[in-house]
């Protein structure tokens, strides 16, 4: 497994704080650059949901695999992918992780076990089960983390995948990131019984407060233990909250500004952990401030490098339609 390119994370809970903060600052910068017209198309920010991927990934080890949807910047960072390569991809630059051909929704880093980055709602779910099948066939006991949202859980292929994963006892950990609002909010929140559906297929399930990174870590450790032991798939529903619209194009009029502000004030995963760390004496204010500065620098450097990078050359148009052998 390739090393993290997101910098050294301190041990323990301070590491969780740093990883979440890096995602937060990265996404805020992406939002800014989108506003400046430097990022185009669809851009789905992860702000508010940082505790989910950070907590889950804290239970992963080298060799584990992960796949997610179009809301994947946070997962890419959690996998240790270079922030500069991600930001350059968001700007459609040659130095981007996908050479500028994928964009915000299509980030990949197979060397770090990160398989995207998929734009079709729910389609990454069977693909993730396939990654797990490959691990099983090779006799590893690695776990594949498959992340998807509450809306994706409504897709038929998710149910199909539960069925096959259960039948083949695949080493896959499904993580439903229930952020409470499907795109546009036309339906009143997430569909019913997200975990009951999986349970009906015979999968073990566990819900968790997705705004509490330590709680997520605890549930992740249990789930990973189950899957790594060869006992088959497992489903976690993390109840979380995204602060921004579904994408930059979504004004999120289906909820009040007050609601989002209240959430941010009382439940923010990063602020909550920061307060706990200070209250418990587990971290000094100065140390946390140093992390804030370090993270800001990483993000600024990534943005500066992306802005300075070249657009892909015309010769890139026809490359990579097929594998070059």
């Amino acid at each position: 497994m390739a090393a993290r390119e997101t910098g050294e994370a301190p041990a323990g809970d301070i590491g969780l704080y740093r990883d979440m903060l890096l995602i937060r600052r990265f996404e805020e910068k992406a939002g800014q650059l989108y506003g400046m017209g430097l990022i185009a198309g669809f851009c789905h920010l992860y702000i508010g949901q940082e505790a989910v991927v950070t907590g889950m990934e804290s239970a992963a080890r080298d060799g584990d695999q992960r796949i997610t949807s179009y809301r994947g910047h946070g997962h890419a960072l959690a996998a240790g992918m270079a922030p500069a390569a991600i930001m350059a991809e968001l700007l459609g630059r040659e130095s981007g992780a996908s050479g500028g051909k994928g964009g915000s929704m299509h980030l990949f880093d197979p060397a770090r076990g990160f398989w995207g980055g998929h734009g079709i709602v729910g389609a990454q779910v069977p693909i993730g089960a396939g990654l797990a099948l490959a691990q099983k066939q090779r006799g590893t006991n690695d776990v594949t983390f498959v992340y998807f949202g509450d809306a994706a859980a409504d897709q038929g292929q998710v149910a199909e995948t539960y069925r096959v994963a259960q039948a083949l006892a695949l080493p896959v950990l499904f993580v439903i990131e229930n952020n409470s609002y499907p795109a546009g909010g036309g339906l009143s929140g997430a569909g019913p019984g997200l975990l009951d559906r999986a349970k009906a297929y015979g999968l073990p399930v566990q819900g968790v407060d997705g705004m509490d990174v330590r709680a997520v870590r605890g549930v992740a450790e249990d789930a990973v233990l189950h899957v790594r032991a060869g006992k088959g798939p497992y489903v976690v529903e993390a109840r979380t909250y995204r602060y921004r619209g579904h994408s930059m194009a979504d004004p999120a009029k289906y909820r009040t500004r007050d609601e989002a502000a209240r959430m941010r004030e009382s439940r923010d995963p990063i602020d909550s952990l920061r307060a706990s760390l200070l209250a418990e004496g587990a971290a000094e204010e100065d140390a946390l401030r140093a992390i804030d500065r370090e993270v800001k620098e990483i993000v600024s450097a990534a943005a500066d490098a992306a802005r300075a990078a070249e657009a892909p050359g015309d010769d890139a148009l026809h490359r990579h339609v097929y594998a070059e052998v």
Binding site: P110, P126, A129, G130, E160, R163
Partner: peptide, 25 residues
């Protein structure tokens, strides 16, 4: 392990095949 019967789930088993192919199978 290499001759795998699957339920009637075309979208899922196609996607599962694709995931396995990504991983080098």
């Amino acid at each position: 392990g290499r001759v795998i019967d699957v339920p009637v789930t075309e979208a899922a088993f196609s996607g599962i095949g694709i995931g396995a192919a990504f991983a080098g199978q």
